[in-house]
């Protein structure tokens, strides 16, 4: 949808609220939900990729050199990556910190 959500009127909606733009969930910023943010310590990372496998939102990218990067546009701050990391390379901190 071209309009921002807060400008969409009831007349703009498709019959049955069908979404006829496939894949537009990718523009939805689930990062807004986050109350805790992952902090990544490269020096502890052994490039095992466990965080990448466990992330339920595919919000972790594996970089060319094998290290990782969180995509904070999608990361909901669930903390699973920090929980699963075998070396403690990821820690969760409060967003306001």
């Amino acid at each position: 949808m071209a309009k921002p959500e807060n400008e969409i009127t009831w007349r703009d909606l498709e019959v049955g609220i069908v979404v006829n733009e496939p894949g537009n969930a990718s523009v939805y910023c689930t990062g807004d939900w986050r109350s805790q943010r992952p902090v990544y310590a490269t020096e502890r990372c052994i490039k095992c990729g466990t965080c990448y496998i466990y992330c339920p939102d595919m919000a972790i990218k594996i970089l060319r050199d094998g290290y990782i990067e969180h995509d904070l546009y999608y990361c909901k701050g669930c903390g699973i990556c920090a929980q699963e990391c075998p070396t403690g390379a990821i820690t969760m901190v409060e967003e306001e910190e």
Partner: peptide, 22 residues
């Protein structure tokens, strides 16, 4: 492809119900 039954956040739900009522 289309999506049927997507979720309606508070900013859209009322508009969805108005459309149905109309």
């Amino acid at each position: 492809p289309v999506t049927m039954g997507a979720f309606g956040p508070p900013i859209l739900f009322t508009e969805a119900k108005k459309a149905q009522d109309e």
